[in-house]
Computed example of a mutant assay.
Amino acid sequence: MTSAETATTAAPDARVERRAKRIAKHLTSFAAQHGGSADGVVEYVGRTATRIVVVGADGTWGDQVAPTYAIGRRAAELAGLTLHDDFEGELGLKVKTGPYEWKRMAGIQI
């Protein structure tokens, strides 16, 4: 394999790592502001996006969007999130909702 082929092969992985590190900084900051640790779920949004739902130790929740599942998963790992397969059970019970969420949910009624 030539050095040009090696550089081309390594470029996508390097790009994924850079993007994941950038997103991980936000996730780490969120965790630090909300109890020092966080749980998360990485879920597909569509063909071109992945959502990382993060729940802090204090029950505050938020999310980040990543361009691919691989980047989202790697960002969550780099941030040290405890990953869950889905947003049900214990993780769902940890979430604390505030007036903003209740107001938005009430506005969606049919």
Rank of each mutant, 00 (worst) to 15 (best):
P12Y: 15
P12E: 11
P12M: 09
V16M: 09
E17S: 06
E17N: 12
R18C: 00
R19V: 13
A20L: 04
K21F: 14
A24P: 00
A24E: 08
K25D: 11
K25L: 08
H26Q: 07
L27R: 06
S29V: 10
S29R: 08
A31S: 09
A31W: 01
A32L: 07
A32M: 06
G35P: 01
G35Y: 07
G35L: 07
G35F: 05
G36S: 03
S37I: 13
S37H: 05
S37N: 07
G40D: 01
V42Y: 10
V42P: 12
E43H: 14
E43W: 04
Y44P: 09
Y44S: 12
V45L: 12
V45Q: 14
T50L: 11
T50N: 05
R51F: 07
R51D: 14
I52L: 14
I52R: 01
V53W: 11
V55L: 00
G56L: 11
A57K: 04
A57Q: 04
D58M: 02
D58Q: 01
T60R: 09
W61G: 01
G62P: 02
D63N: 15
A66H: 06
A66M: 09
A66G: 02
T68N: 02
Y69I: 00
Y69F: 11
Y69W: 15
R73I: 02
R73L: 11
A75Y: 04
A75N: 11
A75R: 08
A76V: 06
A76D: 05
E77Y: 12
L78S: 02
G80E: 06
L83V: 03
L83Q: 04
H84E: 05
H84Y: 11
D85C: 00
F87V: 06
E88G: 03
E88L: 09
E90C: 07
E90N: 11
G92S: 14
L93I: 00
V95T: 01
K96W: 04
K96C: 10
K96E: 10
